[in-house]
């Protein structure tokens, strides 16, 4: 599955995910459900919003920190 590429918005949040290392724990979907979900086909991460709004930044950081395979990058 192709990765949704974030646009590097100045001052904004840019998120990428690695489906190769993802283990489908679902921590990101719990932490920031507007940004991450899990594929119905394989259970792995699906990035819904590569440039989430500022008010989701903390939730996205939490998703990143809770990810057991460190498959989320936030800039």
């Amino acid at each position: 599955m192709s990765t949704v590429e974030p646009v590097d918005v100045a001052g904004g949040t840019a998120v990428t995910v690695n489906r190769e290392s993802c283990c489908g724990a679902g921590q990101c979907a719990l932490a920031a459900p507007a940004v991450f979900t899990q594929s119905e086909e394989d259970g792995l991460v699906v990035l819904l919003d590569p440039n989430p709004p500022a008010d989701l930044r903390e939730a996205v950081r939490r998703a990143q920190s809770h990810c057991p395979t460190r498959s989320i990058t936030v800039r």
Binding site: C23, G24, T37, E40, D42, G43
Partner: peptide
Amino acid sequence: HARYRRMLTAHFTVQR
């Protein structure tokens, strides 16, 4: 490990 786990992950997602 990933080969087996990935057969199961879709059965245990948050949505499911």
